[in-house]
């Protein structure tokens, strides 16, 4: 039996806007300015803030979508989507069961998670060695 067949509406009616989302745009403005001036990246942990689902939708809608949308398969799916403001990324982490476990807005030229990690590259190098040896 799937959860959908249980006739209990577990999700409350859509909560309205709390007014907590607009100040984040000012914060993002300052973070983006810092990225340009100093190259320092930063991020906002959305699950740490009192935002309703409607707030998140509003924010996502205002930031729009950009040219890049990345899907990462690492212990569950993660999506790293560039917004209309280049340098601002909307990052959603899911667990292997598909539930959202963390949500961030990252301000960076490239989110750190997208870069190949030297340790992983070394493993790739070893792998290449092993298949070259089999040639």
């Amino acid at each position: 039996m799937s959860l959908e067949t249980i006739p209990i509406h577990a999700v409350p009616p859509a909560a309205g806007l709390s007014g907590n989302a607009p100040p984040l745009l000012h914060e993002l403005h300052a973070m983006l300015r810092r990225l340009l001036d100093t190259g320092a990246s930063s991020s906002i942990d959305l699950s740490a803030l009192p935002l309703t689902p409607a707030d998140l939708d509003w924010l996502r809608d205002k930031l729009g979508s950009g040219e890049i949308a990345v899907t990462l398969q690492a212990n569950g799916e993660s999506t790293l989507d560039e917004t209309q403001c280049s340098g601002i990324w909307w990052v959603t982490h899911r667990n292997p069961q598909g539930a959202v476990v963390a949500q961030f807005i990252e301000v960076a030229f490239v989110p750190e998670l997208l870069q190949a990690q030297p340790q992983d590259v070394e493993i790739g190098l070893d792998y290449l060695d092993s298949i070259r040896a089999d040639l």
Partner: peptide
Amino acid sequence: ITRRTFLKYCATLASM
């Protein structure tokens, strides 16, 4: 477990 997967795990744990 790749380093990248571990980074993601630590990011979610810190958030939690």
